[in-house]
Each structure stands twice: as C-alpha cells, then as structure tokens.
Amino acid sequence: MSVCITLSEMDKATDKLSSASGHDTQTCQASSLDASAAISRAENTTYGPVMSTMYHQEEISEEEKTPFDRCQDGDVQWLQRELKTGSVSPELADSEGRTLLHWACDRGQTSTAVMLLQNGALPNCQDNEGLTPLHYGMSP
C-alpha cells in the first residue's frame, strides 16, 4: 500500500477537515500527521512469512529440542545429519499425526521442507485431522 500526496493537498484536506469538524486547523493538522505516520509505520512493518496454526513458543535448551522443534526453527544441518545417520525418519509424526514436513511448512521453513522432501518425506501425508503439509503451509 502506498499513499502519496503533496503537502499542498494535505493542507487542503486539513482545511476541509477543520471546516467540517469545527476544530482548529492546528488540531486537524496534528491528526493528519498522526494518521500519515501510522500509515508509514504500517507500510514499513515487516510481518513474518506465516501465522502458525500450531504456535506455542517456550524456551527450550538445545539438548531438549525434539526433531519437531528443529523443523520449526529451520535447523537444516541438524536434521540432515540425523536423517543421514538414521536416528530420525522423514516420516516421524507427533501425537497429532503431524510429520516433520507438517511442522516445517507450518512455520514457513522452506529450505527445511525442501530438504525433508529430498530425503523421502511424503508431501501428501495427512495428520489426524486429514490435513497435509500443504494445508499448514497455506494457512493464514
């Protein structure tokens, strides 16, 4: 969203607002500048790639992290190593039936998802609710 107006246009709008509202020009000008600043802040705000449907964040030490934690964090190196040694399966699922790929897609971890697919993760596997990793990746 981009809003571009000249200062003279803003002054004209402020005068019209002042006349219509019964407030003095200075008050309306301050309100216009506040609105302009809010628009500018909104334009420059960076939002993450996803709004997780499985989100709950708590501090976990490195030793306590599960493969699912590693997927949500995008720890590709750890996952590659563990998949290579066979200590983690690309089909590993949590109690809700969500696989590592579900977790990676849910958190927007594209490189993790690609690596899991390259290592045999099943893209059409369904969790206990019948949702695939794509459902999680496409959720708002």
Rank of each mutant, 00 (worst) to 15 (best):
V3M: 06
I5P: 00
I5E: 06
T6C: 12
E9L: 09
M10L: 15
M10R: 04
M10N: 04
A13Q: 10
T14Q: 01
T14H: 00
D15M: 08
D15C: 03
L17T: 03
S18R: 01
S19W: 04
H23N: 13
Q26R: 09
A30V: 11
S32W: 06
S32A: 15
S36G: 09
A38E: 14
A38Y: 13
S40N: 14
S40K: 11
R41N: 07
A42S: 15
T46F: 05
G48P: 10
P49W: 06
V50I: 11
M51I: 13
T53M: 11
Y55K: 13
Y55F: 12
E58Y: 02
E58K: 06
E59G: 07
E59V: 14
I60C: 11
I60E: 13
E62I: 02
E63S: 12
P67W: 00
C71M: 14
Q72D: 02
D73G: 00
D73M: 09
D75S: 09
W78P: 00
L79Y: 03
L79P: 00
Q80D: 13
Q80T: 15
L83E: 02
G86D: 03
G86W: 02
V88C: 06
E96D: 12
E96L: 05
T99F: 04
L100G: 00
H102N: 06
W103R: 04
A104Q: 06
D106H: 01
D106S: 05
G108F: 07
Q109I: 07
Q109Y: 07
Q109F: 03
Q109P: 03
T110W: 06
S111P: 04
S111M: 09
T112C: 13
T112S: 09
A113V: 01
A113Y: 01
V114F: 04
L116D: 04
Q118G: 15
N119F: 06
G120R: 08
P123K: 01
C125Q: 06
Q126N: 02
N128Y: 00
E129Q: 15
G130C: 03
P133V: 04
Y136C: 02
G137P: 05
S139C: 10
S139G: 14
S139N: 12
P140K: 13
